[in-house]
Each structure stands twice: as C-alpha cells, then as structure tokens.
Simulated scan of single mutants.
Amino acid sequence: MNGGKNDVIVVGGGVIGLTTALVLAESGHRVGMWTRDPLGRTTSAVAGALVWPYRIEPARQVGAWLERSLSHYERLARRPDETGVRIVPGLMKDTSPAGLGSWAARVPGLREARADELPAGVGQALRAAVPLIDMPVYLRYLKERLRAAGGTVERRSVTGFEEPAALAPVVVDCTGIGARVLVADASLYPVRGQVVVVENPGIDEWFVASVPGSTDTTYVLPQPYGVLLGGTATDHSWDLRPDPAEAEAIVARCARIHPALAGARVLEHRVGLRPARPRVRLEAVPLPGGARLVHNYGHGGAGVTVAWGCAEDAARLALE
C-alpha cells in the first residue's frame, strides 16, 4: 500500500467500473471510483441485462469471462430483492447449442425448446434459465457494497488519465464509449440501442430474437418495474433521443410474440450507446510518470454478461 489516499482509481461508473472497483476493494485495496454520470444515467442503467453474449469478441475469452460471471450472478440471485438479480426462464430464437461455446454447459437445463413451448411463427429456439437483472436495483447494490468495502464514489469528469494518475499509482479505464476520445481509440464505436418499458400484462418469461447484422432486434424481458421491450442496434449512431417511429416498431415486433403487449401502457422510453469494438480491450500500459493504466472497455452489448470475469482480470493486471 502507498501513502496516498487511494491505491487504485477506477474511472467510469457503469457496471464494468463498479464491478472492477468492488473486486479491488474487497481484495483489501483502497479504491476510489470517479464517474461522470449518476448511476441512473449510465449506459448500464438502460441495459436489458439478460446474461447472454451479444456484440462482443473474442468468443473464446468471452466464454471464460461469462462462466466466471455466472457463478457470481447465481449467488446474487439468492437475494433478488436486495440485488436485483433473478434466474428467469426463456427462449433464445434461432440459436444452436453447438454454436454457443463451453459456457453453455454451465447453464442448467439449456435445451432445444419443444414445439408446444414456441410462440406462433417461431420455428426453433433454445430454452434456458439465466440471470436477468433489474439494473437500477443492481447498480445501487454494487455501489452500496463498494462503499461497505471502503471504496469511495465521486462524481468527477476527466479529460485524460494524468489527473487520476497523479493521485494513485494505478488507474483503471472503465469509461466505455468515452474511451474513444480519452485514449483516441478510433476502433471503438457506439451501437445505439432503444427500448420501451411497458406495463406487464402477465409475462413471466423472456424471449430474444437477434439477426446478425440487422439493426432491429426483438426482445421481451419481464422486470419488476414492467416489461422491457427491444430493440435496436444502430452502428455509429450517437443519438440519445428516443425515436417515436422506432418505439412503435419495437412494440409491434414484440406484440407478434406476445399479442397482449399491443395494448400495454407505455411507462418509459430509454436509449443507450453500447461501446462496441473488434475485441474487448483488457490490458495494462505504462503512463508517463510511472503509473499503470489498465484498460477495461469495449464490451459491446454484453457488459453485464462478462462484468465479473473482466473485473477479476482487470484487478489482476492492476496489481501485478
């Protein structure tokens, strides 16, 4: 331990930053987390938060991160009211078990759905019970647990990493799409996602249909606050304004799976920017002056899915 206030400063307050800061703090290190946005305004707060890989590479590492994250989520699901984590059954359309990787063996009961379990018009789907997370509750839980471990949380923006590096020997970059400017990473780009939250007409299982390369996806995710309906995946769009026409199309797609959704009262519109990259950037580099900078960003649409596995690897890099 050094004589300063912090051993590590984590920059970024979404699920990646919070989880990384928590792993470090619970390992006995003095950790400060700097976040530009309050929890409710991070991209993580908008997430549908079904634990399943989406728009993230490389597949082999993703599988290992996912398996380790699953172990954490399964434990947290024992206290759903406190953590926001529940294990929920559902259907993943047009997906083969063979294409999932070794992590699928960690999912209890994952199998081909029977014909009588499929919605009208759906020819094939996998059935599985996986973590589905109420992100506002979960982010508050992580923040409280971080503080209980001695970590501090500060609303603070940065224009570079020299400022935190002057206050701690290790800085962890969990800035998501912000890293495009902070480290001039032109390979990082936003994938805009829009969702609609409606009152729940009685849906208790999730459904996801995603066509690779399409800007439109269909997902129905029952949450305690309503049903989250999605979605869109528009590459290179920075627009955070909800589009009424897109919202109408989202509800229409989801209503083809669950007709009761057609008349459900709309509660909220949300838009977030997934931080996509050809592969997750998880590496340590030296900073001028001797500090160590650990990058942990570029998780695409699967930040929640791999958060714990990536946080553990980032913590190891931070403390080498």
Rank of each mutant, 00 (worst) to 15 (best):
L110S: 00
T83M: 13
R78F: 02
V107R: 01
R79G: 05
L110P: 01
R75S: 12
W103M: 10
V85H: 00
S96L: 15
T83V: 12
R106L: 00
H72K: 03
S102L: 13
A113Q: 05
R111Y: 03
R78E: 10
P80N: 10
K93C: 15
S102A: 15
R106I: 00
A115T: 14
P89N: 07
H72R: 05
R114G: 09
R75T: 05
S96I: 04
K93W: 10
R86A: 12
T95H: 09
R78P: 03
G101Q: 11
I87P: 00
P89K: 09
G90P: 06
T83Y: 11
W103Q: 13
R79E: 14
G99Y: 14
D116C: 08
L100Q: 10
T83A: 07
A104D: 11
R106P: 00
P97M: 02
G99K: 11
A98M: 11
I87S: 00
D81C: 05
V88A: 06
P97Y: 01
D81S: 14
G84I: 06
S102V: 13
A115C: 09
R75N: 08
L100T: 09
P97C: 04
D81H: 10
A105L: 15
R79A: 10
H72Q: 08
G109E: 06
E82R: 12
A98D: 14
P97R: 05
A98H: 15
W103T: 09
L91T: 05
A98W: 15
M92A: 05
G109D: 07
P108M: 02
V85K: 03
K93E: 14
D81L: 09
L100N: 06
P97N: 04
A113G: 09
A113S: 04
A77S: 15
A113Y: 11
A113W: 07
T83C: 09
R79F: 08
L100R: 11
E82W: 06
E82Y: 05
M92K: 04
P89H: 13
A104H: 08
L110Y: 01
